[in-house]
Amino acid sequence: MKRRADGFGITEYLVFTVITAAVFMVCTCVGSVNIALSDVIESLRLALNGGEIPAAIYGTYNILIRVRLPRVICVALVGAALSLAGGAMQGLLKNPLADGSTLGVSSGASLGAVIAIAFGIQIPGLAMGGTMVMAIAFAFLSLLLILSLAYKLDATLSTSTIILIGVIYSMFTSSLINLVITFAGEKVRNITFWTMGSLQGSTYTNALVMFGALLVFGGLILLKAGELNAFAVGEDNARNVGVDVKTVKMIVLISISALIGVCVSIGGTIGFVGLVTPHMTRMVVGPNHKKLLPASMFSGACFLMLSDLAARILLRPLDLPIGVITSFIGSLAFIAIFYSSRKGK
């Protein structure tokens, strides 16, 4: 019976920003080598303002600024993007179990990326351009294929239909990815990267690209938050109240594909992030997308940063693929959501 304000207010932004910043700092301090917070701040100051690096922190400075910082930034942005894409998809399809990984969109994007690398598809002047464009295109084509198949089989897009098709499609694309990798050999990163994901070795360029995608496509999704509310009640409801159903669906699906495509080309398939975080966020802020989507971005960033931290320190110095952590938590969450949604009927 609690009252919920319509939008995401200043207070909420402030709270979520502070939490995210705190998680960010923890994730930069802790790792294979723990770095004192004072050294982190000093290194950040030096990196931003320039100046002589004291010999005492030279080693930590290198680890922090060259390796860890770009990685944590990338992780945060990828987490935010995946979570936003998942939240948008769950609203659009009125299904809390919809997500890039459950629908097979991420595997589709991986296939695109792998083909681009194996066949040397490149866009002159853009380092990862070819891979990214192919990943986005394949993500979008996968979405179209999966959804049109699902609509054909069952117009209400019930959970079991979506998941069944998602599973089959993922298996299909995985087999193709394996095939391409077998033939391409050295050029393509190993299969674990594409199936489990990793943000090891991320660069500032990666972060910049991810940030740009989030700004453009994330922004587009956020602008459609009101429409997504209507969709979350039902597509009929959206049409009845006057939503331009076709256009909105297209804009949201393209934006989702773009976000997932960029995420996959940077970090491989990181499963279940878009499933777990919007769901948990919804339990806190409610289903109104004007609140849910911005909040999900913050919680997605936090969730993935912490998962990445776990991946880095659990078997230190071994660096686990990040998807090992997210999929482990995600599958448990999936069962919990599926169970409670079934029980409610």
């Binding site: 049409r239 009845n240 006057g242 331009d244 409610g286």
Partner: peptide
């Protein structure tokens, strides 16, 4: 669609709501 919705109101048969919106939120839509 927006113009159509100002003249034409539709009550569909299927009213299964997926998420726990409040009654007020649904009415305001």
């Amino acid at each position: 669609p927006r113009e159509r919705a100002r003249d034409l109101g539709v009550l569909s048969q299927n009213h299964f709501v997926g998420y726990d919106f409040t009654v007020e939120e649904v009415i305001r839509m």
